[in-house]
Nucleic acid binder design. Sequence first.
RNA 1: UGCCCGAUAGUGUAACGGUAGCACAACAGACUCUGACUCUGUUUGUCUAGGUUCAAAUCCUAGUCGGGCAACCA
Length: 574
Amino acid sequence: MSETKTAPESGTSRHFVSQLIADDVAAARNGGAVVTRFPPEPNGYLHIGHAKAITIDFGMAKEFGGRCHLRMDDTNPAKESDEYVESIKTDVRWLGYDWGDNFYYSANLFEQMYAMAEELCRRGHAYVCELTQEQWKEYRGIPTLPGRASPFRDRTPEENLALLRRMRAGEFADGTLCLRAKIDMASPNIHFRDPVLYRIMRVAHYHTHDRWCIYPMYDFAHPIEDALEGITHSLCTLEFEVHRPLYDWVIDRMDEMGLLVVREGHKIRPIQREFARLSLTYTIMSKRLLLQLVQEKRVAGWDDPRMPTICGLRRRGYTPEAIREFCERIGVSKYNSETDVALLEYCLRDHLNKIAVRRMAVLDPVKVVIDNYPEGQEETFEAQNNPEDPNAGTHPVPFSRELYIERDDFMEVPAKKFFRLAPGQEVRLRYACLLTCTQVEKDDTGRITVIHGTYDPHSRGGHAPDGRKVKGTIHWVSVRHAQPVPVRLYDRLFTVPAPLADESKSFLDFLNPNALQTITGYVEPALAAAAPGERFQFERIGYFCADTRDSVPGAPVFNRTVTLRDSWSKVAAQ
RNA sequence: UGCCCGAUAGUGUAACGGUAGCACAACAGACUCUGACUCUGUUUGUCUAGGUUCAAAUCCUAGUCGGGCAACCA
């Protein structure tokens, strides 16, 4: 059947999930339909790892002309809430994916799941067990040793049915009884040793409220949800691989009961396939640990710009395009990989470079006085909004005798290959003019307080009148026109590439104390009107966005999204 | 000790029995009114051992290393 193998198209290649689906489509399995789903449990905020799954789930549907459902996998009311449901919808939409009318709650299927549980009892595939959890732990055995049968394993279907109904009716205390599948206590796969299907749990569900006191377990619920929604490919992460036989077992039982949906004459039988979850350097991806950071107030909340959550990245200034591009580039495989966060940052810079409007801001100012520029005079220069985009236009920047420049852009004793300002050295003030340093003033501690210089009146706009080469160009802001604004300099949340690698230490030990530094920056007037969420490149520094939470009209607060690449710092470091 | 899965440059990923590519990173250079962007070049790789084959990253066997599985979590 070599003709069913689709050759990679024009240099592009498919990852193994895509190949698998392509084979299914070619073989007209399920009538050639492709329906996927993204099924988060609403018990936390989505993070960059979910973005990978979302990209795969929605991406496969799009690639094969199918659809992707968004489903709240909410079978454990103890941890779930509407707050999370709303955040998930917002984040998936923001990432650019559309589930159309296909939004589901697992909880809406509780009645069907229960009906199937009863049918399992009738058919002798399930029984009500009274073993305590401690007893069961012993009965189940360990991976290397087979388990042994529960004394309740051979109840009659009638007994089981009656007990199950009483469980539902609330006649038993939480945790006293449970419904188990009757499969194989000797299976080398633990998940086949009569797994629990239903537990008693008197917890109000955020969606079904107090209608139920018994709730289905993931292994039972998930295949039912998939089958009833007509999912063809149930894609999930590697840790579910050993659950697959159980997934198939449930699907088989549904098939026997005639519960599989039929679409256009084809019985839809979902299959589960697994891929490696995303792991990123300098980042943790565990929902539990992220929750801990929030609860212990190590960060300001789920949307703290230091967090790898989608809302955190959004607030930091990431674009959905950059995140999607990243997810495309990392590929899909079954290898437990650790992706370098540098790739994410590359995708970010690459997109921001194309769309971010350029502005000048000085974050660590030192004053420059241009002694031959008339006191009281000012003028305006035109600065490009985005050299990468010819249609972006220009904007005016006011200039005067006193300016702020970056302290880093001056060296009293210049290092070799230092092209910026130094005594007797000429530099270009971006878009303005050429400036030569003449002398410096210092305070008692030797710290430079004012730099004096003279400008070339013929270099208007920054062009050398005689065509002489001026190697260095630096940014500046007119002191008189500068707007002081709060600027938050964000950096990696952790100081080491793998904060969880050392099991003898807590990941908290590796929190980066400098992951957030708040300073006052001096920005050009045009920046005062920045709208919340608006993204900029502060020339020669990095990409910033106006914070969506703390900015007020006329008084923006800026978050550093990511720095520009900086090859000088490497040279300077030696 | 049982079962399942995996292993290709520093990182991630392609090659589907027929010349080991690509991207990120690193390094060197060119260009530059952003030491950015862009461009050019360089370094570095098939876990090991057998076997099948004219030919193996690819198929088989064994081993090594890594990950997962013993919640009434998902």
